[in-house]
Computed example of a mutant assay.
Amino acid sequence: MPLLKLQEITRQYKSGQIRVNALKGISLTVEEGEFVSIMGPSGSGKSTLLNIIGCLDRPTSGTYELAGQRIENLSDSRLADIRNRFIGFVFQSFHLIPDLDAQANVELPLIYRGMGARERRFRAVQALEAVGLAERRHHRPSQLSGGEQQRVAIARALVGDPKVILADEPTGALDSRSGRNIMAIFQQLNRERGITIVQVTHEKDIACYGRRIVYLLDGQVEREEILEDPQVAFGEAAVSTTGLLTEVQEK
């Protein structure tokens, strides 16, 4: 059974008296354990599609199944619960709370689950260890580099043990070395933990770290490309199967 299954998805918006067709009958299937990149020019519908996959928005028409469950007609509270328990989000602008340290930022999704403080702290530290930032867990975002902030964001996405991580331009605000580090983490989360990853990017070299590229144009799937030999990211650290950091030679 596919993890994500979208059939004939449309999304329309009103801008004054004008109706904008952001998505025009998109059908897309993502199997559990895939690493899929979504590419397309500005205005092609990439972020709109990712928002629907992430249950942040609803389609105008069409059907969407997540792990076999129909999603499009669920209540707002049920959608919020699905987002919290099944989906991890990573955004270009990190979305960290500036007054909280790294550990407190990572704990946030678990607070919404009603998890006790001791368990939250334990799981947050584990997630920060997995991205190489356990020693900086008491630093606030302003005390971290851009790459470190994005790694905190990945730890926050990871802490809830999600089925899928959705990333919207995850390297867009980073230098090339930090971007490679982020892709190294994504690849090992995908390969060693089996987490499904769907990322939106406008950079072809970043898209090539996945195993499939879906190209959008004018709100439709233009074509798909299977990568038999995806690009391999070599960064400062990579996630091991035990959640500890393994040093990797920079190439």
Rank of each mutant, 00 (worst) to 15 (best):
F122G: 15
R137K: 10
G132Y: 00
S142T: 11
I97E: 13
A102L: 00
I111K: 12
Q103F: 00
L100A: 10
R123E: 06
S77I: 13
D81P: 04
V90T: 11
S77V: 12
M115R: 09
I87F: 05
R121N: 10
P98V: 09
A117K: 14
S145G: 02
Q149L: 03
S145H: 08
L108P: 02
F86S: 14
P98M: 05
S75W: 06
Q126R: 15
D99N: 09
H138T: 13
G132I: 02
F89V: 08
R120P: 09
R85P: 08
N84V: 01
R121M: 05
R85V: 02
L133R: 03
Q150R: 07
A102M: 05
E72H: 00
A124S: 13
N73Q: 11
A117Q: 12
I82N: 05
L96Y: 02
E148C: 00
Q149R: 10
L110D: 06
M115K: 12
R78F: 11
R121C: 07
H139G: 07
R83E: 01
V152Y: 02
E135Y: 11
V125D: 01
A127L: 06
G147K: 00
G116V: 07
V106W: 04
L108Y: 05
E119Q: 12
G88M: 09
A153H: 01
G132M: 02
F91A: 07
I82G: 04
M115I: 14
E72Y: 11
P109Y: 00
M115E: 08
R78G: 08
D81V: 12
N105C: 07
S142C: 15
R85M: 13
R121H: 11
R118D: 14
Q143G: 13
V106I: 02
Q126D: 15
F94E: 05
Q150S: 04
R120M: 13
A134D: 08
H139N: 14
Q126F: 08
R137A: 02
G116Q: 13
R140L: 15
H95L: 14
R85H: 14
H138K: 09
E107H: 04
I82D: 05
R140P: 14
D101H: 03
A127S: 12
H95Y: 15
D76H: 10
Q150M: 00
H139K: 13
A104H: 03
R140G: 13
A127E: 11
E72M: 07
G116S: 12
H138N: 09
F89K: 08
P98Q: 10
R83H: 04
N84H: 01
R85S: 11
E148M: 00
I111P: 03
R151E: 01
M115S: 08
A153T: 03
I87S: 05
L100C: 12
G132Q: 05
Q92R: 15
R120T: 07
D81H: 12
P141N: 10
N84Y: 05
G114M: 06
N73I: 11
D76K: 14
R83D: 01
S145Y: 01
H139A: 13
R140T: 14
F122A: 15
A80F: 03
F91N: 07
Q126W: 15
L79S: 05
A127P: 09
D81A: 12
V131S: 00
D76L: 11
R137Y: 02
E107M: 10
A130L: 01
R85E: 09
